[in-house]
């Protein structure tokens, strides 16, 4: 069948391109998650802070980036980034318009959104750490930084795991929107393949299936990680 050939790895096949697109989607999402982790931790810290200004800033961040369409955030980062890069370029003597690299724009935009969700995850996880255990760490003379590193952070990461799984799925799907910047990730590659072969249905179904493969695979990874943590960490027995 011709259609099978189109999905294959031969000269006329798009199979290889689609797999490359999958890799790109994974890379963008992964980078975004890392950017979001840094931003999310900062925003969570601000929201838990005693300073009213920091709390307000943190709250504004989460409200805006969880409430505004993802596409709009991608546009502002991509076009805004290009404007900044162009003016810096002109200062250095370059001429004309310089585009912001689409990978960086995409990862940054999805990362900023992911950060607003991760902030809530970390905040919830921190609040789930038993106050008494932090107090016990103080009572044995642990300095602030050591307390954070040895007692708070490991527990926050464990409590955050299910929430992070959700954020990963969300970011994976958001990354499809990065296709508007022209980055050849899975969505964009499906689009190009569909357009140039006129086999829209075939390639969008193929793209969709590959996304499903990615989401269910990562689901399993997170489920397994959670099960591992649950086995050692939380029993049902009474904790004080």
């Amino acid at each position: 069948m011709d259609q099978i050939m189109l999905l294959g790895f031969g000269t006329k096949g798009w199979g290889g391109m689609l797999l490359l697109g999958m890799v790109m989607t994974f890379l963008v999402t992964f980078t975004a998650l890392a950017i979001g982790a840094v931003l999310g931790a900062l925003v969570a810290w601000a929201r838990l802070s005693r300073s009213r200004l920091a709390r307000f800033g943190g709250e504004a961040y989460t409200t805006v980036f969880r409430g505004v369409p993802e596409l709009l955030v991608i546009y502002v980062v991509y076009f805004g980034g290009s404007t900044v890069v162009t003016s810096v370029g002109q200062l250095l003597g370059a001429e004309g318009f310089i585009g912001f690299p689409s990978f960086i724009a995409g990862a940054l935009a999805v990362g900023v959104i992911s950060g607003s969700y991760q902030a809530e995850v970390y905040r919830g996880a921190f609040q789930a750490v038993a106050r008494g255990e932090i107090e016990a760490a103080r009572s044995v003379g642990m300095p602030t930084l050591m307390r954070f590193r040895r007692i708070i952070a490991p527990q926050v990461m464990r409590f955050a795991l299910p929430g992070l799984g959700n954020v990963w799925q969300l970011s994976l799907k958001d990354s499809a929107l990065v296709s508007v910047t022209g980055l050849a990730e899975l969505m964009r590659t499906s689009q190009v393949a569909a357009g140039s072969t006129r086999q829209y249905f075939l390639f969008y179904i193929a793209g969709g299936v590959l996304y499903l493969v990615m989401t269910s695979l990562s689901n399993q990874v997170f489920d397994r990680a959670e099960a591992r943590v649950a086995r050692s960490f939380r029993g049902g027995l009474g904790r004080g």
């Binding site: 038993a130 008494g132 255990e133 107090e135 016990a136 760490a137 103080r138 009572s139 044995v140 003379g141 007692i151 490991p154 527990q155 464990r158 960490f233 939380r234 904790r239 004080g240």
Partner: peptide, 18 residues
């Protein structure tokens, strides 16, 4: 340092659960 010389035992144990 002084805290590490005065060990405290809490009502709710406060063992580190992780």
């Amino acid at each position: 340092r002084i805290r590490s010389e005065l060990a405290m035992v809490f009502q709710s144990f406060n063992l580190w659960s992780h």
